[in-house]
Design a protein around this nucleic acid. Structure first.
Length: 736
DNA sequence: TAATCGTTGGTTTTT
DNA sequence: CCAACGATTA
């Protein structure tokens, strides 16, 4: 007991030992929020406030959920089985499996991941003969998911124009298709769960009675539906309902673009009459200068709940700033700096290269590669998203649920068995006529295509029978073999890696049943298989780790959230890139970018490098940008310039020849590249940062430029008219 | 049915 | 510039 609370600071202690009540914990970066969350659970259990069955703890990622489970069992001997700890989607899946009938779902319903969902929508549009130029599948997917995540079914969508009305019709059709096929997409997992709880009183009562303490991680990332779901489970804060313990940081809210609603924090405070907002502001990660920079930066945001990080570990090193000529030079400098760090004994794995957008990794990778520095890029294809794995899973899905048309279409002709587009069209038409899933439509067909399709159906039936008494991994193995997938990839010249991945899938199946417990009964194939398939959809797998590889870590700032490194390089600190130009179009977009910058800065433990370039290759064109305003928002005293600091102006107006002053600054990059070409003439005497007047748009400032000669365009931010790109050859811009 | 060519668009992303 | 996708061609 005493051990449990050892070494907690006063605020952490207060949060952990709060008497059962609704609470909002504002947990700053590196303030030990996970520890608080876990210790809170242990404390509640240890002091008999509730049993493990009474705990519901929810996270966003599987990684976080797993960490919570492991650390909890390490901290405190408890049967974690009874607790509901998992992701929103994982828990909703569990809930829907338990109540599939009441939820109106088949017992073995399948889960569509985003890719599957997109494929399903494409198929739908084709079947309905909808012009996918007018209704791009991706947009429709976004629309549908957006509605679902706001808790809105088609009937409740406010559609005032024809376009929206048509999209709502397609939303209806899409729902019907999913229902027919017995599949559920990600947002549907949540919405179904929510609706079932809402409308089924016995079930609602049961869960409201069961869960006494609901704990939420990364609360600032919840969307509207998730908050309503939590709220419902906690009986809206009424007497006798569960206590909601929400941990989050509004300053680290960086997922509004995917539906996160920071406003949930304020709403929660109000709706649940939260008496105690506890701030965790002591940071155990970074040195003072880094925190000061982060604090200064985020102070520029207006809509904050308010928080100030501090540390007792001393100021540490200054933040190093480097101005490069081009993106290539920037990358070159980063690599040299890394080499020097490694020479001094720094481990490569403790160094991170962060950037705003994935496209920026290319140059960095190139330089790292040619210097022979091992590196690892996060955020590519994940294991369960690989095509060979998806193919194998599709066969398994058909065994579990033949109505799954997405799976059917995926493998009906893979490996090829003479079923072409023509046959599938016939089949699709027939399916519509009979209103049956593709699989069930096959027997209705006659003729040659019918025969080939019948063979495919026979194959699936055969697989189902032959695997009925096998254990999961044997089943997977058998399916890979008999379906012809293994032979197919064996024959393919580049198929070796794919074969290995298929073997890995068999391993994954074996591990899965092992973890599930020894209780697996052969022949009960349904449920184990369905659970494995759900697992594959819900947990696409870690971004493959090169185990033991001492490698520099490359990732976007988004991907870095929650991580920390001794040394962080943040490159591309330029207007238009970071903050990203598109952010200017969105309401409060700049504040979100600033939070993103805040996240980036607070990743560093000891040393932080910030860099920007004068010119950068983007979309095949050289662009000239101002350095990021975020740089200006960090107090000068915290910065150490590795290149001479300039007034915030582009080289266009002020050629930076002074960089060539040989003795100017000692860390000047050893291989100083030639200066970028002077483009000032191309801008017709204008320069970035300059104020101009336009006859129609009024006064503004040139923010960036691209192209040259006749194609030269400048982006002008007008006081009244907003931001515009103007062709210099066309627009008359008068310097003011 | 596979290979090749041309077009298009290019923040951020977990489940 | 360059990757991903769709349409066309052998």
């Amino acid at each position: 007991m005493s051990q449990l609370l050892d070494n907690l600071n006063p605020e952490q202690l207060a949060a952990v030992t709060l008497s059962p009540q609704h609470a909002l914990i504002l947990a700053g970066a590196g303030s030990g929020k996970t520890r608080v969350l876990i210790t809170r659970i242990a404390w509640l259990l240890q002091n008999g406030y509730c049993s493990p069955q009474g705990i519901l703890a929810v996270t966003f990622t599987n990684k976080a959920a797993k960490e919570m489970l492991t650390r909890l069992s390490a901290m405190f001997p408890v049967n974690t089985r009874g607790m509901w700890i998992g992701t929103f989607h994982g828990l909703c899946n569990r809930f829907l499996r338990a109540h599939f009938r009441d939820a109106g779902l088949p017992q073995l319903f399948q889960i569509l991941d985003s890719g599957d969902q997109l494929a399903a929508i494409k198929r739908l549009l084709k079947a309905l003969n909808v012009d996918d130029e007018k209704f791009p599948p991706k947009d429709l997917q976004h629309f549908i998911n957006g509605q679902k995540e706001a808790g809105i079914r088609p009937a409740a969508v406010e559609a005032w124009d024809d376009y929206t009305r048509r999209r709502v019709e397609l939303y209806v059709e899409y729902e019907a298709q999913c229902q027919r096929e017995g599949v559920v997409d990600f947002p549907e997992l949540l919405l179904r769960s929510y609706e079932l709880l809402e409308r089924n009183e016995p079930i609602r009562r049961h869960y409201q009675g069961r869960f006494r303490h609901i704990l939420v991680d990364e609360f600032q990332d919840t969307n509207v539906l998730q908050y309503r779901w939590l709220s419902l489970l906690a009986d809206g804060g009424r007497e006798g309902g569960a206590s909601l313990f929400c941990v989050g940081d509004d300053d680290q809210s960086i997922y509004r673009f995917r539906g996160a609603e920071v406003g949930n924090m304020r709403d929660f405070e109000k709706d649940f009459k939260v008496g105690s907002v506890i701030r965790l502001e002591q940071n155990y990660r970074s040195h003072g200068n880094i925190l000061d920079a982060a604090n200064a930066l985020i102070a520029n945001n207006s809509k904050r709940l308010g928080k100030q990080l501090w540390t007792d570990r001393g100021a540490g090193e200054p933040i190093r700033v480097y101005e490069a000529f081009t993106d290539t030079d920037e990358a070159r400098w980063v690599v040299e700096e890394i080499q020097s760090l490694v020479r001094d004994g720094m481990s490569r794995a403790d160094i991170a290269l962060l950037y705003r957008s994935n496209a920026q990794s290319r140059v960095l990778e190139h330089q790292l590669f040619s210097s022979g520095i091992p590196y690892r890029v996060y955020g590519g294809l994940r294991f369960f998203e690989r095509q060979e794995v998806k193919h194998a899973l599709a066969y398994l899905r058909l065994i579990a649920n033949p109505d799954d048309d997405t799976a059917f279409t995926r493998v009906v002709n893979f490996p090829t068995r003479g079923i072409g587009a023509r046959s599938l069209e016939v089949l699709g038409d027939a399916a519509r006529t009979w209103n049956t899933p593709l699989y069930q439509t096959v027997p209705h067909l006659t003729g040659k295509p019918g025969a080939a399709l019948a063979q495919f159906v026979a194959l699936i039936e055969r697989l189902r029978q032959e695997t009925a008494n096998l254990r999961l991994h044997e089943m997977v193995d058998h399916v890979i073999e008999v379906s012809g997938l293994r032979a197919h990839y064996k024959a393919e010249k580049e198929g070796q890696e794919r074969l290995e991945n298929l073997d890995e899938l068999i391993n994954a199946a074996a591990n899965f049943s092992a973890e599930l417990g020894a209780g697996e009964v052969p022949g009960e194939h349904g449920s184990t298989l369905a659970e494995f398939l759900a697992h594959a959809s819900l947990e696409a797998g870690d971004h493959q780790a090169d185990v033991g590889m001492e490698a520099v870590q490359l990732m976007t700032v988004h991907a870095a959230k929650g991580l920390e490194f001794d040394v962080v390089f943040l490159s591309g600190l330029e207007e238009g890139l970071f903050p990203h130009e598109n952010s200017a179009l969105e309401l409060d977009g700049l504040e979100e970018e600033r939070r993103l910058m805040y996240v980036a800065v607070t990743r560093a433990r000891q040393r932080l490098y910030l860099s920007f370039t004068q010119s950068r290759m983007l979309h095949g064109q050289v662009r000239y940008n101002l350095r990021s305003r975020f740089l200006e928002e960090i107090p000068d005293g915290l910065l150490k310039w590795l290149t001479p600091p300039n007034p915030r102006r582009s080289f266009v107006s002020e050629p930076s020849t002074r960089y060539y002053n040989p003795g100017a600054s000692k860390p000047a990059a050893p291989s100083m590249p030639p200066p970028p070409p002077q483009k000032s003439r191309d801008l017709g005497g204008l320069s970035i940062g300059q104020s101009v007047r336009h006859a129609r748009f009024g006064d503004g400032v040139i923010v960036s430029a691209e192209g040259s000669g006749n194609d030269a365009r400048v982006q002008v931010k007008f006081a009244e008219a907003g931001s515009k790109w103007l062709m210099l050859a066309v627009a008359k811009l008068i310097p003011v």
